[in-house]
């Protein structure tokens, strides 16, 4: 019952997000300075074309001179039929574009998250078990370094090392696991920098807890103590924090995708905003908003599973 209510609440949240995001995008794109038809024409035909002439044709073709309210109500009506419309620049269905680009971004985000989970919590675990020890200090130095370097610099450094010097991995492209590794690693190091510190603090707190000491006193081997009494308790704040990291991920994919020529949703969003491609902006923002809701829902479910106390509250 609790789960059902919870899912219903999330679904309602998703609906509200859809309308708010759509409306916000619509209004923001309209109040931006500059003529939308000109922007779209420049986006379509490039900066060498006769943009002013092209803009007149674009205006007629897309009906941009109709009242804004009419255009917005049309968009809402289409959304209710799950129709996101067509891109003003490429002319293809937004849903189709998103399918390709969102798919690419989801793979990148998942790969980055997995890599960060391989790095962050493990580094944090060793640091947290011996706070102030060598592992903790090296971990802190690494975390500060990787969090402080912006993703575009980190990406370039990784390219220089792994593509130019070693020649192991391609600096750009998409479609195979070889090509996803560098962008995913760029994001993962930033994610791991934070999650390793959160893990370290959680583990340190658990390691100081009376129940942890008790497990040791009763003579359990260290590995069993950590596995049975440490990991699950320490995992709760780490998992909750993963939800917050989704923000870093979504912000990160925009930069990283452009740098690595990875045709994902972040890359698409940047182009759509510059080119005033309103349906694409609405579609991508909507997809990103819904991703947030989905990640939050997953994080909540995992927390519920990890922490039985929460089930009573829910």
């Amino acid at each position: 019952m609790a789960i059902k209510n919870f899912l219903l609440a999330r679904l309602l949240q998703a609906g509200i997000v859809a309308i708010v995001v759509g409306a916000l995008c619509f209004v923001l794109m309209r109040v931006l300075p500059g003529d939308a038809a000109m922007r779209i024409a420049a986006g379509r035909y490039g900066p060498d074309a006769r943009i002013a002439d092209a803009a007149e044709k674009v205006r007629l073709e897309l009906g941009l001179d109709r009242p804004i309210a009419v255009q917005f109500i049309e968009w809402l009506g289409s959304l209710a039929r799950f129709d996101l419309g067509h891109s003003l620049v490429t002319g293809r269905a937004v849903a189709h574009e998103l399918q390709v680009q969102l798919g690419a971004s989801v793979w990148l985000a998942v790969a980055a998250l997995m890599l960060s989970l391989l790095i962050g919590p493990i580094v944090g675990l060793f640091g947290g078990l011996r706070p102030g020890g060598t592992a903790d200090r090296v971990g802190l130095l690494g975390a500060v370094t990787f969090r402080a370097i912006p993703p575009f610099v980190l990406g370039l450094i990784l390219m220089l090392v792994f593509s130019r010097q070693l020649g192991w991995l391609p600096p750009a492209g998409f479609g195979s696991p070889r090509e996803i590794l560098l962008p995913a690693l760029t994001l993962a190091l930033g994610l791991a920098a934070m999650s390793s510190r959160v893990t370290r603090n959680a583990v340190a707190a658990v390691a100081r807890a009376p129940y942890f000491a008790f497990a040791r006193y009763k003579g359990l081997p260290e590995a069993v103590v950590v596995r049975r009494h440490g990991l699950r308790n320490a995992a709760i704040p780490v998992v909750s924090y993963l939800g917050l990291q989704a923000i870093y991920l979504i912000e990160g994919v925009v930069v990283v995708e452009s740098l690595f020529a990875y045709p994902g949703i972040g890359h698409a969003l940047v182009h759509a905003i510059v080119e005033r491609d309103v349906p694409m902006v609405q579609g991508t923002a909507l997809a990103m908003g819904l991703m947030f809701v989905a990640i939050a829902a997953i994080v909540d479910l995992v927390t519920l599973w990890l922490d039985p106390r929460m089930r009573k509250i829910a």
């Binding site: 593509s163 130019r164 020649g167 600096p171 750009a172 492209g173 452009s258 740098l259 020529a261």
Partner: peptide
């Protein structure tokens, strides 16, 4: 053909033999 928007990334594509 691969479209690579960043000039620096294109240079690295050439240097890495990709």
């Amino acid at each position: 053909y691969l479209a690579v928007g960043q000039g620096e990334t294109r240079a690295l594509m050439a240097e890495s033999g990709e």
